[in-house]
Design a protein around this nucleic acid. Structure first.
Lengths: 340, 340
DNA sequence: TTGTAGGCGTTATCAC
DNA sequence: GTGATAACGCCTACAA
């Protein structure tokens, strides 16, 4: 049988209450007693019992806040589905989930919503906009005692406890790896990225280039265009690419705008001659896979991202466990129509 | 706040003990009282609290038995890793894991080991040999009150509570899907299966054929050979295939023997001209991917299979939850070197 | 057949 | 500062 607070109390000849105060840093303990108790607990290898914690947690009425820049992005529909499904399991532990979504990269709005949540939640799951003001606001919440987990996108040098998402560089590497096989090592590739301002997109491109240089010297990267994750814009830039490069036989779609790119290919009747690798599996992307326009897509486990972020938060709030790894990285998977 | 046993007891004006006896089918309750209590519980939507159950479960010293035909099969090394890692999390709940492994498809031995475990475990995770005697033995354990979960391979018409594994047919479909893309729809395919006696292997072949007929009419399936999951045998049959079919430009490896197949390809200096799709990522398979002999491999999440099987068992034993779905199916993923 | 009570481990609330 | 005690929800002896 493992060591408990009660046992430590007996051994130290003090009450469980005091041991609890020490082990949970609640203060109001004489320094000597504190040191002594800590030593004993350490020595005996005390590990809090998750079931006990969970049972006691019911009274706390914990709230997990979720703040996502997700509106109009089908990827996040899945993330939210994972969060909701997991949240239902947690009601028995007295945990409630409060989800707020927003649309577009509006730094001020994200900070505002975080301010609102500051007094209402015990933890926050967020896909932060990459901006110093958001970073500072996150740090502010953390200092206020809120447990913050970033999901899908991380924010550098912030005090967030954990990041749950995929490895962007590896996503690009994987895209190039499969494209190399599909093209037998020879391709003239057009690239449609989301934005040069989004580091995740740039990382994917860097990963793609890295494998290209290492494994596929016959690959030729024609040009990189920005779609701003917008289908219309994607349609326009792809049309330009097609006109400019008659020889183009592959397209790497780094981010959103998949549908727009495909419509451009179809519009120029080049969709059967060009191999397309994209990311994620939005409904329109799936449709384009069924029409054999998109050949393969790289999948980032959106549902699992939501679920795992919730599990990390739950483990902390209810069981008092801090995540083992500060980055929780999911694999990039390759999907064809058959294993979607 | 959710409804508890205590509340039901108050409402019914009887003791918690009696309510507990009813709700957990322990008998020794007057039929009328039983009916009444059940009605109230139903009405109020009683759901046992997992934390309470977990806490009380500590005294039971539960044992999860694991019986795997796994020796010499690297796929199961990963399954076991998932089981072990998950098991460690469960010691705090008084749950112990007892793993027995065996080698080769020895029905009598598997039944013997199940007999041994019958009196020692509260649940069993097993990859059953497809045989009526094993099926009967499983039913015997279930009738004896043991919660049985099959992992990786299911056994038809048994009383097992849940199956955790992948969809074999879809695995074959996925293999054909990606091969179709790699070969631009034109291939003369040699197939090396494990055994015609193993239904999972046959299902994969059926899935492959299905997509072939539907999507790739130009595919030609040359011949199917059995390797008996043995590298030497695989080497031999592949060598024969190579000699017989000069035109062969693709190989579909349905099960084990990947290394043997690859060595044959290398031996005949055909490895660069032939596209290879295999299953799983044994160390030798990874090596052959690095040497560009195997192009892609289909991945069945072995670690996750182990982990999820444990979670299903835990939820039942400790939280009293029966699995929502009787089949817990993991996706078939496509792996290249970059996203292994 | 039913009721009582203590314990599983942690935590909050008192009283001292 | 510290200690005692009653929850949290469930289970199981044992008593009636």
């Amino acid at each position: 049988m493992a060591i408990t607070i009660k046992k430590i109390a007996e051994i130290c000849n003090i009450s469980r209450g005091t041991v609890d105060r020490v082990l949970n840093n609640r203060g109001k303990v004489k320094p000597e007693t504190e040191v002594f108790i800590r030593k004993i607990a350490e020595q005996m290898g005390y590990e809090p019992n998750p079931a006990g914690k969970a049972l006691a947690a019911k009274k706390k009425k914990l709230v997990i806040g979720v703040l996502l820049v997700s509106e109009g992005n089908p990827f996040f529909d899945e993330v939210i589905r994972g969060i909701r499904a997991t949240g239902i399991e947690y009601v028995a532990y007295g945990v409630r989930v409060s989800i707020k979504t927003m649309c577009g990269y509006d730094v001020r709005r994200q900070c505002e919503l975080m301010d609102e949540m500051k007094s209402e939640v015990n933890a926050l799951i967020i896909n932060p906009i990459s901006d110093i003001r958001v970073c500072n606001k996150i740090n502010e919440l953390v200092d206020h005692g809120i447990f913050v987990v970033t999901v899908n996108t991380d924010i550098a040098n912030s005090k967030r406890a954990c990041f749950v998402g995929s490895d962007y560089t590896n996503g690009g590497e994987t895209a190039c790896g499969i494209m190399g096989l599909l093209m037998k090592g020879h391709a003239k590739v057009g690239v449609v990225t989301g934005s040069f301002k989004v580091s995740g997109h740039n990382q994917r491109i860097a990963g793609f280039k890295k494998i290209m240089e290492k494994k596929y010297p016959e690959f030729q990267l024609l040009e990189i265009m920005e779609s701003e994750d917008d289908d219309i814009r994607a349609f326009e830039v792809t049309t330009k690419l097609l006109q400019k490069y008659e020889e183009m036989d592959a397209v790497f779609i780094v981010a959103g705008g998949v549908y727009g790119v495909c419509r451009a290919l179809i519009g120029q009747a080049r969709e059967q001659k060009i191999t397309v690798v994209s990311f994620d599996s939005a409904p329109t992307t799936v449709e384009m896979m069924k029409r054999h326009v998109v050949d393969v897509t790289i999948y980032q486990h959106p549902y699992t991202q939501g679920r795992d972020a919730m599990q990390v938060v739950f483990a902390y709030l209810v069981n008092g466990t801090t995540p083992k790894k500060e980055r929780h990285i999911l694999k990039n998977e390759i999907k064809v129509l058959e294993n979607l």
